[in-house]
């Protein structure tokens, strides 16, 4: 595809606040993760391995940070907000867990640096990674402030799925080969399948008709998946997720939220970097 095509067609999906943004989205898939409910159990992460053909790399490669977990549960010990950990003898408020997957930024820092336009913004607001375009420059990964892009340093097909483990592979998406970058897709194969069914039945996609593997399995239902389009475009159907965002007074297209009610817990990780992520977290709660 020509450079002209890349510039004209694809960059239009990339938001520029300064240019008024792009408004022709079909969907804006997003998430909300309630850290008051998240228990850090890791079920979401393993569900992601099962759904998305993630390679198991083994201890040695893990030690070199070559692991492929699209969804990782980060754990922090200090609590800057509570301010008292430094002096305590014990971890008296437990741990801080943070499920981290691609934030599907509206102003994704990974997109403009790709020399071959293998990562771009789709009309449903997702940050796509096209494996067969990727040449493995890894610029995107360097530019991601969340460190959520994973590179195939090796071909894992034989090592990660010795027969018959390979029979478990999900045929709805590609097994990535050596030299390719990959990351969380918000289970794009599920999105596509649900859209296909809706289209086949000549109807609109319903809210809650499908969900991502992580949200589906979550034992505390801390993860909510849905469409944020009504936050972005007036007159679109409200989803459970957009109601949740609205209730938390978190808006897209901001580097800082100006909430009427400052007690509302919704926030976006590192939003000050103007990445405009589509994953909203709800603050963890502790009695002190």
């Amino acid at each position: 595809m020509s450079l002209q095509n890349i510039l004209q067609d694809w960059s239009k999906y990339r938001k520029g606040n300064e240019e008024g943004g792009f408004h022709d989205y079909e969907h804006l898939w997003g998430l909300a993760i309630d850290l008051n409910k998240c228990i850090g159990c890791n079920a979401c992460s393993v569900a992601c391995y099962a759904e998305n053909n993630l390679a198991v790399v083994g201890k040695d490669k893990f030690a070199k940070h070559q692991e492929m977990h699209w969804l990782r549960v980060e754990r922090y010990w200090d609590e800057p907000d509570l301010g008292e950990q430094a002096v305590s003898d014990y971890q008296s408020h437990g741990a801080s867990f943070l499920p981290m997957m691609c934030q599907q930024c509206m102003a994704a820092t990974c997109e403009p640096v790709c020399p071959v336009a293998a990562t771009y913004h789709t009309p449903d607001g997702l940050n796509a990674q096209v494996y067969n375009r990727c040449i493995g420059s890894r610029y995107c990964s360097n530019n991601c402030p969340y460190r959520l892009r994973y590179f195939n340093f090796y071909s894992y097909y034989e090592d990660s799925w010795p027969a018959p483990l390979n029979m478990q592979l999900n045929p709805d998406l590609t097994v990535r080969d050596k030299g390719v970058m990959e990351k969380c897709t918000f289970c794009v194969q599920r999105i596509r399948a649900a859209k296909d069914v809706a289209k086949h039945e000549h109807r609109e996609l319903q809210d809650g008709e499908f969900t991502t593997a992580c949200a589906q399995t979550c034992p505390t239902q801390a993860i909510v998946f849905g469409d944020l389009l009504s936050l972005h475009t007036a007159g679109k159907a409200e989803s459970t997720l957009s109601t949740l965002w609205r209730d938390q007074q978190v808006e897209l297209g901001r580097t800082e939220q100006h909430k009427q009610n400052p007690d509302k817990r919704g926030y976006r990780v590192l939003e000050g970097l103007n990445t405009d992520p589509k994953v909203m977290y709800l603050e963890r709660v502790r009695e002190v």
Partner: peptide, 20 residues
């Protein structure tokens, strides 16, 4: 192991939660 002051996981007190 530390958030280095970046507010990756923000924590609020329960009374704030109850209010909100």
């Amino acid at each position: 192991e530390s958030q280095l002051g970046r507010k990756m996981v923000a924590t609020v007190k329960a009374e704030v939660f109850a209010r909100s």
